[in-house]
Simulated assay, not measured.
Amino acid sequence: MSIELPKPIADYVAANARLDADAMLKPFAVDAVFLDNDKRFEGHDQIRKLFEEEVIAAKAIFTPEAIRREDDKVVVVEGPAHGDFPGSPLRFTYRFTLEADAVKALEVTA
């Protein structure tokens, strides 16, 4: 199934499929906040470290299966992530806050 994602989210998902940290970071605002199961990462440096140490190291690739909008800024995307981590694949919910064609915040929960 193919779903239509807003451009910053589509860019992030495509980069994640390639495990490309630079491209994964590109859709995020410079001052973005990433909440990963209650761990908080602020700004590009901390988010890049998260991508390198936890996403790319585990080869964790997210596959969106469903999308819904909560309002004009928040987009919720759900689907499994596969990789080299316990319990793979696991279902995740990605809650993106978009602002000015960038990801301002992302909250990921399993």
Rank of each mutant, 00 (worst) to 15 (best):
I9G: 00
R48W: 09
V13I: 13
K49Q: 14
L25R: 02
R48T: 06
L25Q: 03
I3C: 03
A10D: 11
V33K: 08
A32I: 00
A10W: 04
D45A: 15
P8E: 12
R18H: 11
V13L: 03
H44V: 12
F28L: 07
H44G: 11
A17H: 11
I47S: 01
I47A: 03
K49A: 15
N37H: 10
A29D: 11
I9H: 01
P27Q: 10
V13P: 00
Y12F: 15
A32Q: 01
D20R: 06
I47K: 02
D31T: 12
N37M: 14
R48V: 08
Y12E: 12
P27W: 05
L35N: 15
L5N: 01
P8D: 11
F51Y: 11
D36P: 01
A14Y: 06
F41Y: 15
G43N: 05
A21G: 09
V33A: 07
L50Q: 09
D11W: 00
E54W: 00
Q46F: 05
K26P: 02
D20M: 08
L50P: 05
D11E: 15
A14E: 14
I3E: 01
P27K: 03
F28H: 03
Q46E: 15
A32G: 05
I9P: 02
E4G: 10
R40K: 15
I3N: 04
A17Q: 13
E42L: 10
D11Q: 13
F34P: 01
P8V: 05
L5D: 01
A32P: 03
K39V: 13
I3R: 09
F34K: 08
K26A: 15
R40E: 13
D38E: 15
F51W: 06
E42S: 15
Y12K: 05
A21L: 04
D38T: 10
A21R: 03
V33R: 07
V30E: 14
P6I: 10
Y12L: 13
A17P: 03
Y12Q: 08
V13E: 00
D11S: 14
D45K: 10
V30D: 14
K26C: 09
Q46W: 05
R18D: 13
D11T: 09
D22I: 11
F41R: 08
I47C: 03
D31G: 02
E52N: 14
H44S: 14
E53L: 05
E53N: 10
A29L: 09
D36T: 03
A21Y: 01
L19N: 08
D31W: 08
H44D: 12
K7L: 12
K26V: 04
I47T: 02
Y12M: 11
E53M: 04
K39S: 10
L5C: 05
A23V: 14
N16R: 05
A32C: 07
A14I: 12
A32Y: 01
L25Y: 04
F51T: 01
D22K: 14
V30L: 10
F51A: 00
V13M: 04
A15Q: 04
D36Y: 04
L50C: 06
A17T: 06
L35K: 05
M24K: 07
D11V: 03
P6H: 06
I3W: 09
D45T: 11
K26D: 12
V33M: 09
Q46S: 13
A14M: 07
H44R: 14
I47N: 00
F34E: 04
I47F: 02
K7T: 13
L25K: 03
K26N: 14
R40C: 08
A32F: 02
D45S: 14
A14L: 10
L19R: 11
I3D: 00
V30H: 12
L19Q: 12
P8R: 02
